[in-house]
């Protein structure tokens, strides 16, 4: 800043390029500095909140396990410690819950599928010992308020997934056979959203089910 204060705005013609660069560069550096400071300051609570949200979701779908491990999907197998060269954030993850006595509870698995309006993201608990679901929780959806968003709020629908056998079979409320564990009553007025949830779970189980079963068998041997 060669210009002493008080001369007002410099005329457009007689400004050197170096001055333009210094002004922008200096301001840019200052802006970068400020952002890094705020980033450092806010990041811990942002990360803590994200971890807390995930922990709560896992607790809910695995019925309050005493602890859980994160498993990474590498080459069709689940591993607790992927090789050092792999970027853990890019690998698909499932969570294995444990009881205090060392027995495993089941897997918490995330799934996503295009719904009525946009992608619906959910997490569900799966018990490989019985082949049944433990619970389901929708994490993110932009479904129509009052209709499709019942997949988030309708406790009867959410309860349907507890103990349901996979693959699931969506039926109209009251029209299914009694005693069929794979049957899920869909929400009237939110058929597409209900079906999306069911399809997301079925597809994920079809893809990951055998892998989780194999992991559970190896772990108990």
């Amino acid at each position: 800043m060669t210009d002493p204060a008080g001369t007002g705005q410099p005329a457009a013609a007689d400004v050197r390029t170096s001055r333009l660069v210094t002004t922008l560069g200096g301001l840019g550096a200052l802006a970068g500095l400020l952002i890094v400071v705020v980033f450092r300051w806010t990041q811990p609570s942002i990360q803590a909140h994200k971890a807390e949200v995930l922990r709560q979701a896992i607790n809910e779908v695995l019925k309050e396990p005493d602890s859980y491990d994160t498993l990474y999907l590498v080459d069709g197998k689940l591993e607790t410690e992927p090789a050092a060269g792999l970027d853990r954030t890019k690998l698909e993850q499932v969570y294995l819950g444990h009881r205090g006595n060392g027995g495993s509870v089941g897997f918490a698995v995330a799934a996503a599928e295009p719904g009525f309006q946009d992608v619906i993201r959910l997490i569900f608990g799966y018990d490989p010992k019985t082949g049944h679901l433990m619970a389901m929780k929708v994490l993110e959806s932009k479904e129509t308020p009052g209709l499709g968003d019942k997949i988030l709020k309708d406790s009867a629908f959410i309860g349907e997934f507890e103990g349901a056998a996979v693959p699931l079979n969506g039926v109209k409320r009251g029209s299914g056979k009694a005693g069929d564990a794979s049957q899920v009553d869909m929400i009237t007025g939110a058929t597409i959203s209900s079906r999306t949830v069911i399809r997301a779970i079925n597809q994920t189980i079809a893809r990951l089910g055998p892998i989780m079963d194999a992991y559970a068998r190896n772990a108990t041997q």
Partner: peptide
């Protein structure tokens, strides 16, 4: 007062 006119909007 310190910002040249040419880079005003960019700033």
């Amino acid at each position: 007062r310190w910002v040249p006119d040419q880079v005003r909007i960019a700033t």
